[in-house]
């Protein structure tokens, strides 16, 4: 079971935004996507669950083409998308109603919906805010509601478009650990971010640049490739950057540490 993206091209009224993008993601896999502003990440995200239909090429979700309009309903159920801006996604006025909206649309029985809403709100730490109006929430609280809304739908794949842009460092870690847990449960994760340190646990990272795949590779390959990252407007994250500097100052690593934990362990050896 997988999402296959084959020679995908997309344009907005004749202006080309994605060209010949190819990759595949299996259930249980975690793929990170990074690229400078305007490189086409959010457009790609919308192609993955059929909001946008490819101008050329194909997106196939568990064997079903997103172009098949009769199957749209199944595709949306299979691939959940957390939008870059929560305001584009939040629809109901009360937090718990908003989170229930997705599952309700899928025709799930009320008792199960209640369970799922509870589960999703607990997971994002908003269970105490369940009765509050969405409009009265802070920026980061809204972003968490948007994530809960997709969790409650229990999709097979989740596409997250900058899900932590409004969260504090602790909140970022929480979202990331939720994502890793979902991966363990067999959910396919496509994670778009400008905070490249969040991709250290990705199985694969794809760099988008001007609508094309510029480079792809393992987290270690991509996150230590200072030259490539700098060339396309990104930056090497702090820990690998520090690793490279320490190398320059004579501390030898077999493998460049990516995380704080790795670095601490290596330095205490």
């Amino acid at each position: 079971m997988s999402i296959e993206v084959k020679n995908l091209s997309f344009d907005y009224e004749g202006i080309s935004v994605l060209r010949d993008v190819n990759f595949q993601i299996d259930r249980g896999e975690f793929i990170g996507i990074a690229g400078p502003n305007g490189s086409g990440k959010s457009t790609l995200a919308r192609c993955l669950n059929g909001i946008f239909s490819p101008v050329k090429g194909e997106v196939v979700v568990d064997g079903i083409s997103v172009k098949d309009t009769s199957k749209q309903w199944i595709i949306r159920q299979t691939v959940g998308l957390v939008f870059q801006n929560p305001d584009n996604q939040l629809v109901a006025s009360i937090v718990e109603e908003d989170v229930a909206f997705g599952p309700e649309n899928l025709g799930i029985p009320p008792a199960i919906i209640r369970e799922r809403v509870q589960y999703a709100l607990e997971r994002v730490g908003l269970i105490n805010e369940r009765k509050r109006p969405v409009s009265s929430l802070s920026g980061g609280q809204k972003q968490r509601v948007a994530i809960a809304g997709i969790l409650a739908m229990r999709p097979e794949y989740i596409v997250l478009d900058e899900p932590t842009s409004m969260l504090d460092p602790v909140g970022r870690k929480e979202v990331l650990s939720t994502v890793l847990q979902l991966k363990e449960e067999g959910v396919g994760i496509i994670y778009i971010t400008h905070h490249l340190e969040e991709l250290v646990y990705a199985d694969k990272i794809i760099l988008l640049y001007k609508g094309e795949v510029f480079k792809e590779g393992s987290a270690r390959e991509i996150l230590t490739d200072e030259e490539t990252l700098t060339r396309i407007g990104l930056e090497i994250p702090e820990i690998p950057a520090l690793s490279l500097r320490l190398k320059g100052l004579g501390i030898d690593f077999n493998e460049t540490p990516l995380t704080i934990e790795e670095m601490v362990n290596v330095l205490f050896n």
């Binding site: 460092p169 602790v170 970022r172 520090l242 704080i260 601490v264």
Partner: peptide
Amino acid sequence: SLGVPQLVELLYNLYKRGADIPYNILDM
């Protein structure tokens, strides 16, 4: 539950494991 910059977190972890270093450093 705010957290600290990555460099500070790293240095603080080293410090807690016994390294004799300052950890309030923000410059790489």
